[in-house]
Simulated scan of single mutants.
Amino acid sequence: MGWGHNGGISAGNHQEPPVATPELERILAQHRRDPLQLLQILIEVQAHEGWLPPATLSAVAEALGMPRARVESTASFYSFLHTRPSGEFRILFSDNITDRMLGNQALMRALCDKLWLEPGKVSEDGLVSVDTTSCTGMCDQGPAVLANGRTITRVTPERIDEMAHLIRRRVSVGDWPPEWFHVEDNIRRRDVLLDHGLAPGEAL
Protein backbone atom coordinates (compact mmCIF):
# COMPACT_ATOMS: atom_id res chain seq x y z
CA MET A 1 0.00 0.00 0.00
CA GLY A 2 1.00 3.62 -0.45
CA TRP A 3 1.35 6.17 2.35
CA GLY A 4 1.39 9.92 2.40
CA HIS A 5 -0.08 12.98 4.03
CA ASN A 6 -3.63 13.49 2.78
CA GLY A 7 -4.14 17.10 3.66
CA GLY A 8 -5.01 16.73 7.31
CA ILE A 9 -7.93 18.28 9.12
CA SER A 10 -8.72 21.93 9.21
CA ALA A 11 -8.16 23.90 12.37
CA GLY A 12 -11.04 23.76 14.79
CA ASN A 13 -12.28 20.30 13.84
CA HIS A 14 -10.78 18.91 17.04
CA GLN A 15 -13.63 20.67 18.89
CA GLU A 16 -16.22 18.37 17.30
CA PRO A 17 -18.01 16.36 20.02
CA PRO A 18 -17.69 12.58 19.71
CA VAL A 19 -20.48 10.76 17.90
CA ALA A 20 -20.50 6.98 18.32
CA THR A 21 -22.85 5.33 15.83
CA PRO A 22 -24.09 1.74 16.27
CA GLU A 23 -21.74 0.63 13.48
CA LEU A 24 -18.79 2.30 15.16
CA GLU A 25 -19.70 0.60 18.44
CA ARG A 26 -19.82 -2.74 16.63
CA ILE A 27 -16.37 -2.21 15.09
CA LEU A 28 -14.90 -1.10 18.41
CA ALA A 29 -16.35 -4.14 20.17
CA GLN A 30 -15.05 -6.45 17.45
CA HIS A 31 -11.54 -5.16 18.15
CA ARG A 32 -12.08 -5.17 21.94
CA ARG A 33 -11.38 -1.44 22.07
CA ASP A 34 -7.70 -2.25 21.72
CA PRO A 35 -5.59 0.87 20.99
CA LEU A 36 -3.15 -1.34 19.08
CA GLN A 37 -5.95 -1.95 16.56
CA LEU A 38 -6.36 1.77 15.81
CA LEU A 39 -5.41 1.59 12.14
CA GLN A 40 -7.67 -1.38 11.41
CA ILE A 41 -10.53 0.30 13.25
CA LEU A 42 -10.13 3.45 11.16
CA ILE A 43 -10.03 1.40 7.95
CA GLU A 44 -13.26 -0.40 8.82
CA VAL A 45 -15.03 2.75 9.99
CA GLN A 46 -14.12 4.49 6.75
CA ALA A 47 -15.36 1.51 4.73
CA HIS A 48 -18.76 2.05 6.35
CA GLU A 49 -18.93 5.86 6.41
CA GLY A 50 -16.93 6.66 3.28
CA TRP A 51 -14.55 8.97 5.16
CA LEU A 52 -13.51 9.85 8.72
CA PRO A 53 -15.48 12.85 9.99
CA PRO A 54 -14.06 14.87 12.91
CA ALA A 55 -16.80 13.66 15.27
CA THR A 56 -15.95 10.05 14.41
CA LEU A 57 -12.27 10.61 15.18
CA SER A 58 -13.27 12.10 18.53
CA ALA A 59 -15.46 9.08 19.28
CA VAL A 60 -12.66 6.64 18.39
CA ALA A 61 -10.19 8.52 20.59
CA GLU A 62 -12.61 8.54 23.52
CA ALA A 63 -13.45 4.84 23.13
CA LEU A 64 -9.79 3.79 22.96
CA GLY A 65 -8.67 6.13 25.73
CA MET A 66 -6.19 7.82 23.40
CA PRO A 67 -5.31 11.47 22.78
CA ARG A 68 -7.38 12.74 19.88
CA ALA A 69 -4.23 14.18 18.32
CA ARG A 70 -2.82 10.67 17.96
CA VAL A 71 -5.95 9.39 16.23
CA GLU A 72 -6.04 12.44 13.98
CA SER A 73 -2.36 12.15 13.05
CA THR A 74 -2.82 8.48 12.15
CA ALA A 75 -5.82 9.27 9.96
CA SER A 76 -3.92 12.12 8.30
CA PHE A 77 -0.74 10.14 7.65
CA TYR A 78 -2.10 7.35 5.46
CA SER A 79 -3.25 8.38 2.00
CA PHE A 80 -5.85 5.61 1.91
CA LEU A 81 -7.61 7.19 4.90
CA HIS A 82 -9.71 10.26 4.16
CA THR A 83 -10.36 13.04 6.65
CA ARG A 84 -12.31 14.91 4.01
CA PRO A 85 -15.18 13.62 1.86
CA SER A 86 -13.91 11.71 -1.16
CA GLY A 87 -15.63 10.46 -4.26
CA GLU A 88 -17.59 7.26 -4.57
CA PHE A 89 -14.61 6.23 -6.71
CA ARG A 90 -11.26 7.19 -5.14
CA ILE A 91 -8.41 6.92 -7.66
CA LEU A 92 -4.85 7.39 -6.38
CA PHE A 93 -1.93 7.38 -8.80
CA SER A 94 1.34 6.03 -7.43
CA ASP A 95 3.75 8.94 -7.60
CA ASN A 96 7.43 8.09 -7.41
CA ILE A 97 10.35 8.36 -9.81
CA THR A 98 9.68 5.08 -11.62
CA ASP A 99 5.97 5.83 -12.09
CA ARG A 100 6.84 9.29 -13.39
CA MET A 101 9.32 7.81 -15.85
CA LEU A 102 6.51 5.54 -17.05
CA GLY A 103 4.14 8.46 -17.64
CA ASN A 104 1.88 8.51 -14.59
CA GLN A 105 1.40 12.29 -14.72
CA ALA A 106 0.10 12.24 -18.30
CA LEU A 107 -2.19 9.33 -17.42
CA MET A 108 -3.61 11.19 -14.42
CA ARG A 109 -4.21 14.32 -16.50
CA ALA A 110 -5.95 12.22 -19.14
CA LEU A 111 -8.28 10.63 -16.58
CA CYS A 112 -9.08 13.99 -15.00
CA ASP A 113 -9.83 15.48 -18.42
CA LYS A 114 -12.18 12.63 -19.25
CA LEU A 115 -13.99 12.97 -15.92
CA TRP A 116 -14.04 16.79 -15.92
CA LEU A 117 -12.33 17.32 -12.59
CA GLU A 118 -9.11 18.68 -11.12
CA PRO A 119 -6.52 16.49 -9.37
CA GLY A 120 -6.98 16.50 -5.61
CA LYS A 121 -10.65 17.47 -5.78
CA VAL A 122 -13.97 15.65 -5.73
CA SER A 123 -16.21 15.92 -8.77
CA GLU A 124 -19.24 18.16 -8.32
CA ASP A 125 -21.58 15.16 -8.29
CA GLY A 126 -19.46 13.41 -5.64
CA LEU A 127 -18.81 10.52 -8.00
CA VAL A 128 -15.02 10.49 -8.19
CA SER A 129 -11.82 12.00 -6.85
CA VAL A 130 -8.36 11.64 -8.38
CA ASP A 131 -5.11 12.28 -6.54
CA THR A 132 -1.61 10.89 -5.97
CA THR A 133 -0.17 8.65 -3.29
CA SER A 134 3.33 7.55 -2.39
CA CYS A 135 4.88 4.33 -3.67
CA THR A 136 2.45 1.41 -3.80
CA GLY A 137 5.24 -1.17 -3.98
CA MET A 138 4.50 -1.82 -7.65
CA CYS A 139 7.54 -0.04 -9.09
CA ASP A 140 8.33 -3.05 -11.30
CA GLN A 141 4.76 -3.16 -12.64
CA GLY A 142 3.90 0.51 -13.04
CA PRO A 143 2.38 2.84 -13.67
CA ALA A 144 0.14 1.75 -10.81
CA VAL A 145 -2.98 3.18 -9.23
CA LEU A 146 -5.18 2.40 -6.25
CA ALA A 147 -8.88 2.26 -7.10
CA ASN A 148 -10.88 2.27 -3.87
CA GLY A 149 -7.88 0.66 -2.22
CA ARG A 150 -7.32 -2.02 -4.85
CA THR A 151 -4.07 -2.05 -6.82
CA ILE A 152 -4.16 -1.77 -10.60
CA THR A 153 -0.86 -2.44 -12.35
CA ARG A 154 0.54 -1.52 -15.76
CA VAL A 155 -1.91 1.31 -16.42
CA THR A 156 -2.09 2.33 -20.08
CA PRO A 157 -3.94 5.08 -21.98
CA GLU A 158 -6.39 2.41 -23.13
CA ARG A 159 -7.08 1.39 -19.55
CA ILE A 160 -7.56 5.03 -18.61
CA ASP A 161 -10.21 5.35 -21.34
CA GLU A 162 -12.05 2.28 -20.08
CA MET A 163 -11.63 3.31 -16.44
CA ALA A 164 -13.31 6.65 -17.13
CA HIS A 165 -16.14 4.84 -18.91
CA LEU A 166 -16.65 2.41 -16.01
CA ILE A 167 -16.63 5.22 -13.46
CA ARG A 168 -19.19 7.26 -15.40
CA ARG A 169 -21.42 4.16 -15.53
CA ARG A 170 -20.89 3.65 -11.77
CA VAL A 171 -19.60 0.10 -12.28
CA SER A 172 -18.28 -1.22 -8.97
CA VAL A 173 -14.48 -1.57 -8.82
CA GLY A 174 -15.02 -5.23 -7.99
CA ASP A 175 -16.57 -5.67 -11.45
CA TRP A 176 -13.72 -4.05 -13.36
CA PRO A 177 -11.61 -6.31 -15.64
CA PRO A 178 -9.86 -8.82 -13.35
CA GLU A 179 -6.64 -8.71 -15.38
CA TRP A 180 -6.16 -5.09 -14.26
CA PHE A 181 -5.56 -6.31 -10.72
CA HIS A 182 -3.01 -8.97 -11.60
CA VAL A 183 0.19 -8.61 -9.59
CA GLU A 184 3.17 -10.63 -10.76
CA ASP A 185 5.41 -12.40 -8.28
CA ASN A 186 8.82 -11.33 -9.50
CA ILE A 187 10.84 -13.17 -6.86
CA ARG A 188 12.72 -15.60 -9.08
CA ARG A 189 14.99 -17.34 -6.57
CA ARG A 190 14.45 -17.99 -2.91
CA ASP A 191 17.69 -18.19 -0.99
CA VAL A 192 19.07 -17.80 2.50
CA LEU A 193 17.37 -14.46 3.19
CA LEU A 194 13.91 -15.58 2.10
CA ASP A 195 13.59 -19.30 2.59
CA HIS A 196 16.19 -20.61 5.00
CA GLY A 197 15.15 -21.92 8.39
CA LEU A 198 17.76 -20.20 10.52
CA ALA A 199 17.73 -20.90 14.22
CA PRO A 200 17.53 -17.78 16.41
CA GLY A 201 20.98 -16.21 16.64
CA GLU A 202 22.52 -18.07 13.68
CA ALA A 203 22.31 -15.07 11.38
CA LEU A 204 24.64 -13.19 13.72
Rank of each mutant, 00 (worst) to 15 (best):
M108A: 08
I43D: 01
E62Q: 15
H14Y: 08
T74A: 12
E72I: 14
H182K: 13
D131H: 04
L111G: 02
W116D: 05
D175I: 05
I91W: 02
G142R: 07
V122S: 03
G137S: 08
G197A: 11
D195C: 10
E202L: 08
A55K: 13
E44W: 12
N96W: 15
Q141V: 14
F89A: 05
H48Q: 13
P200I: 03
E72T: 13
P53I: 12
F93H: 01
E88G: 03
S73N: 13
P157T: 03
A61I: 02
D125K: 11
I160P: 08
G87Q: 02
R84Q: 15
W180L: 10
G201F: 04
Q141H: 12
H5P: 03
C135Y: 11
T156L: 01
I152C: 07
N96P: 08
I27C: 01
P17Y: 01
P200W: 07
Q15H: 12
D125C: 10
C139G: 08
G87N: 01
V130S: 01
F93I: 10
G137N: 06
K121T: 15
L117Q: 00
A63N: 00
G197I: 01
M66I: 03
G174W: 12
D161M: 09
S129K: 07
S58F: 00
P157W: 06
E118V: 01
T98K: 10
L81T: 01
A144C: 12
L111M: 05
D191P: 09
Q37F: 05
G12R: 05
V145Q: 09
Q105W: 02
F89Q: 09
W3S: 10
D195I: 10
C135I: 15
R26N: 05
G197C: 00
L42A: 04
K114Y: 11
L102M: 14
G137L: 12
V145C: 13
Q37Y: 04
V145S: 12
Q105C: 09
N13G: 03
G120Y: 06
E202S: 11
H182N: 13
C139D: 01
D125V: 11
R190F: 15
A63V: 06
T151S: 06
A75C: 04
P17M: 05
L107H: 00
G137F: 11
D125E: 10
R90G: 03
E158V: 07
F89Y: 14
A75D: 07
R170H: 14
A75T: 03
E88Y: 08
V45A: 13
T132M: 00
A199K: 12
P67R: 03
R190Y: 15
I152F: 12
L127S: 13
R188Q: 15
L81Y: 04
D131Q: 10
V183A: 09
M1Q: 12
F77W: 09
T156N: 01
L39V: 11
T21A: 04
